[in-house]
C-alpha cells in the first residue's frame, strides 16, 4: 500500500470513529462539547511547529511563528475555557440534595 493510500485509509476510518463517538448528547453538553472539539483541532500546533522548524527564509519563519502563536491560542485557550465551563457544572451539581446517580440522566 502506498503512503498516500495508507493516509487516506486512516482518514476514512477516523471519519467513522468521529461519527460513532458522538451518538446522543444532551443539549446541555452541546456547548462544552463544541468547545472541547475546538480545542482538539488546536493540535494544528504540531503542523505549525513542523513548518516553522523546517522553514526556508525569513518570510516563512515569520509566517510559521504566527501560525504557532495562533495554534497555541486555539489549543491552550480551548482546553482551559472548556474546563472552566465544566467546572461550573460540577459546582452547581454538588449541593443538590438528590442522590448522585440522578445526575446521569443527561442534564
Amino acid at each position: 500500500m502506498s503512503e498516500g493510500m495508507a493516509l487516506l485509509t486512516i482518514f476514512v476510518l477516523a471519519v467513522f470513529v468521529g461519527f460513532e463517538v458522538i451518538s446522543k448528547v444532551s443539549a446541555v453538553l452541546h456547548t462544552p462539547l463544541m468547545s472541547g472539539a475546538n480545542a482538539i483541532h488546536g493540535v494544528i500546533l504540531v503542523g505549525a511547529i513542523l513548518v516553522t522548524g523546517q522553514s526556508d527564509g525569513t518570510a516563512q519563519l515569520v509566517l510559521g511563528l504566527v501560525a504557532v502563536l495562533l495554534a497555541t491560542l486555539n489549543m491552550v485557550g480551548g482546553f482551559v475555557v472548556t474546563d472552566r465551563m465544566l467546572e461550573m457544572f460540577g459546582r452547581g451539581r454538588r449541593p443538590a440534595p438528590r442522590p448522585p446517580d440522578d445526575t446521569g440522566r443527561g442534564t
Binding site: 471519519v15 483541532h41 503542523g47
Partner: peptide
C-alpha cells in the same frame, strides 16, 4: 500535506463529530 497521521486523525475526528453536533 505534512504526512502526519496525528493531524489526520485529530482533524477528522473533529470534522466528523462537529458535523454531527
Amino acid at each position: 500535506v505534512l504526512g502526519n497521521t496525528l493531524l489526520i486523525v485529530a482533524g477528522t475526528l473533529v470534522g466528523a463529530s462537529g458535523t454531527i453536533l
